[in-house]
Computed example of a mutant assay.
Amino acid sequence: MESSEADVVISGISGRYPGSDNIEEFWLSLINGNELYSADDRRWPIGYVGLPPFKGTIKDISKVDQQFFRISPEEADSMDPQFRMLYEVVYEAIYDAGRYAFK
């Protein structure tokens, strides 16, 4: 397939990370060399061999804007927290792509 000057790709980005609620916070943490894990993130006692000693925790994983996504409270309670977060992250990625597409 040949490309031409009229070909356009619109992409967006979003995410949640330990110690960062969005891509901008995560990027600033990386640039500044911030530690994204705390002492509370320790999985097991010091000296346990074979597995990483820390876990990455994401705050407010169980929250979702039920009204915005038109999810009933009962449905939201039965959903996996990762799936609820997926709603928000996908929406933010689409919004991010549109932010640059129509200037």
Rank of each mutant, 00 (worst) to 15 (best):
E2Y: 01
S4Q: 11
S4I: 12
E5C: 04
E5Q: 07
A6Y: 14
A6F: 15
D7W: 04
V9E: 01
S11I: 00
S11L: 01
S11Y: 00
G12R: 01
I13F: 07
I13V: 11
Y17E: 01
G19Y: 00
G19K: 00
G19R: 00
G19A: 00
S20F: 02
S20V: 00
D21S: 13
D21N: 12
N22L: 08
N22P: 09
N22T: 05
I23L: 10
I23Y: 06
E24C: 01
E24W: 00
E25M: 08
E25L: 03
F26E: 06
S29G: 15
L30W: 01
L30C: 08
I31N: 12
I31M: 13
N32G: 05
G33Q: 07
G33M: 06
Y37E: 04
S38I: 02
S38T: 14
A39T: 02
A39V: 03
D40T: 05
D40C: 04
D41Y: 05
W44E: 12
W44D: 05
P45N: 10
P45W: 06
P45V: 11
I46S: 02
Y48D: 11
Y48L: 14
V49Y: 06
G50R: 13
P53I: 08
F54L: 13
F54R: 07
F54C: 09
K55W: 09
G56T: 11
G56H: 12
T57D: 15
I58D: 08
I58S: 06
K59P: 07
K59Y: 03
D60S: 08
D60F: 03
D60Q: 08
I61V: 04
I61G: 01
S62Q: 12
S62T: 13
K63T: 09
K63A: 09
V64W: 09
D65R: 09
Q66K: 10
Q66V: 03
Q66M: 11
Q67N: 13
Q67L: 08
Q67E: 15
Q67F: 03
Q67P: 02
F68W: 12
F68A: 08
F68Y: 15
F69V: 02
R70P: 02
R70C: 12
I71F: 06
I71G: 10
I71H: 05
I71E: 04
S72M: 01
S72Q: 00
P73K: 05
P73V: 02
P73H: 04
P73R: 05
A76M: 11
A76P: 12
D77A: 13
D77H: 05
S78E: 15
M79K: 12
Q82I: 12
Q82M: 15
F83K: 08
F83R: 09
F83D: 10
M85D: 06
L86P: 04
L86S: 14
Y87S: 04
E88C: 13
E88L: 13
V89P: 06
V89Y: 03
V89E: 13
V90I: 14
V90E: 01
E92Q: 13
E92L: 10
E92V: 07
A93G: 15
I94Q: 03
Y95V: 09
D96M: 12
A97K: 07
G98Q: 02
R99G: 03
R99D: 11
Y100G: 15
Y100E: 14
F102G: 10
F102L: 14
F102S: 14
K103I: 05
